[in-house]
């Protein structure tokens, strides 16, 4: 899941300064789960913007709507009949959602209310951690299901650096050393030999941005469309 966090209120305040009619658009998928931009968070955020505006003596109307997803045109379509009424749209989606919303309504000013953090998992109530950096060439089979690209700050593929400290990382003593975890896991499942193999340099061409991917099943239809 994409994990995001809300920007400080004052940052969003600065973005919407001078606008009177504002629509806050929530996203009901990843950011709803990580409590950053779903229906509930939109309600809270809109209330904050209203109260702040009132306290600062600003003339401002804040409306709110949350759609299923902002990364699919079908759902963005539902906003078509509303957007003309607003001076600015504040999106509480991840960066991808904000961009798609801005692309769909390209005559509108679309503003981000969140900072997108990473692809991660829920470690506990209200705590998320990064687990994947979308390298496009998964090596988890070699590393006992622990990602050296993500969990190791230096993205090392061949073992720990000298900064490993009692199983913790030199970069942040709170975080585990990826290669200590990998070693322990591979030892446990009897696959240390995979760690003895020298991994070749990563193919970073696969990570060239912007990434684009067409599902195999859709390749032919796409080609037909282009003809």
């Amino acid at each position: 899941m994409i994990v995001a966090e809300r920007k400080p209120l004052e940052q969003v305040e600065a973005m919407i300064d001078g606008f009177e009619r504002i629509l806050v658009v929530g996203c009901g998928t990843c950011v709803a789960v990580c409590m950053a931009g779903g229906e509930k968070e939109v309600e809270l955020f809109a209330a904050e913007l209203r109260m702040k505006g009132k306290l600062d003596g600003k003339q401002r109307t804040i409306d709110e709507i949350t759609i299923t997803r902002q990364c699919d045109m079908e759902y963005l379509e539902q906003l078509a009949k509303y957007v003309d009424d607003y001076d600015a749209i504040v999106s509480t989606a991840c960066g991808a959602g904000v961009q798609f919303l801005a692309e769909r309504y390209d005559e509108k000013l679309v503003l981000p209310a969140l900072n997108t953090r990473f692809i991660g998992v829920a470690e506990g109530a209200g705590v998320w951690s990064q687990r994947c950096m979308a390298c496009s060439d998964c090596v988890l089979d070699q590393t006992g299901g622990i990602c050296p690209m993500t969990i190791c700050a230096k993205n090392l593929l061949n073992g720990p650096c000298g900064g490993t400290d009692h199983g913790k990382c030199e970069v942040d003593g709170e975080k585990d050393c990826a290669w200590t975890l990998i070693y322990r896991k591979l030892e446990k499942i009897g696959r240390l030999d995979t760690m003895r193999k020298i991994q070749p340099p990563k193919d970073y061409s696969l990570m060239t941005t912007p990434g684009k991917y067409t599902h195999e099943a859709f390749k032919e239809t796409q080609a037909e469309d282009e003809e």
């Binding site: 629509l23 009132k54 003596g57 401002r60 409306d63 709110e64 709507i65 949350t66 079908e74 539902q78």
Partner: peptide
Amino acid sequence: SITQAAGRKLAKESDEH
């Protein structure tokens, strides 16, 4: 009393499909 429109929650229609 700063007169200000209260803001509203827009109705989301059920997904088209």
